[in-house]
Design a protein around this nucleic acid. Structure first.
Lengths: 136, 136
DNA sequence: CGGGATCCATAGTGATACTG
DNA sequence: CAGTATCACTATGGATCCCG
């Protein structure tokens, strides 16, 4: 099979998916990706991929997230079905967050992206520096 | 090999990469991912993956992007080394945008994410609807 | 044609203080 | 412990007008 034709076909498929065949206003792919493209969403999913955590544990695990953003991001992840929230009626109460099957299914594609980022961040930073130098 | 141990190791690796081993303030992975997580960045990369386009062509191709965001997103993508910008001194001038090798390298991981989103958007929307119904 | 400049609305993010 | 509430600030995105 001609790999060039195959590649172009794949590219068109992906672009078509991202544009919902012209219906930009209501594109499912963009809708889903929007939901996980927040500053903390992917990070928390990756943390919970290891094992379930309680609220305070997550706070200590990710020291630079504010309480507000942790609450809000977990809420959004729960709403979209990625995270399960279980309240244990102890005193004081404890709440455990874990990934659902849907949340776990996100791991593989996210891992690809992270590995790509890890592999290319030097090139990106070099390009950025060269670009800024050329502008000055 | 025990796949469970392997999976946990992979998860820890990815999380470690996303947290820069504790140095959250300057994490390369998050820096790179931030750069492509804009509303239009990935869409334009996927469009240019097919073939180079001129400014006006891109505008018509993605009708719901504003002129400002098209200009700015292309500028950012160029700055990070994903997009090459070539000016043809015709009259009136024409400007062609194309992917660099770095930009092309983004296609595969992005494709994974898009396919995952396509496969799971029904589940996400169902979860969202159920969650909202439960809240009401 | 391919932008730049300006103004404005909204969403995202954070600091702080308070609560069941 | 696990949040809520409030406020302030910044980033993102869009509309409009202008220009070489």
């Amino acid at each position: 099979m001609d790999s060039k034709i195959f590649n172009l076909k794949a590219k068109l498929e992906v672009y078509k998916a991202m544009t919902n065949g012209g219906n930009f206003a209501d594109c499912p792919v963009r809708d889903v990706i929007q939901g996980i493209s927040g500053k903390w969403s992917s990070l928390l999913v990756m943390a919970l991929a290891e094992k379930p955590y309680r609220f305070g544990e997550l706070r200590r695990l990710v020291p630079d997230i504010s309480q507000r953003m942790l609450t809000q991001t977990l809420y959004d992840l729960q709403r979209d079905g990625y995270v399960h929230r279980e309240v244990f009626p102890t005193k004081p109460p404890s709440v455990e967050y874990s990934l659902t099957d849907l949340g776990r299914s996100m791991f593989a594609p996210l891992q690809m992206l992270v590995q790509w980022a890890e592999l290319n961040h030097d090139a990106v930073r070099a390009a950025r520096a060269a670009f800024d130098a050329a502008q000055a």
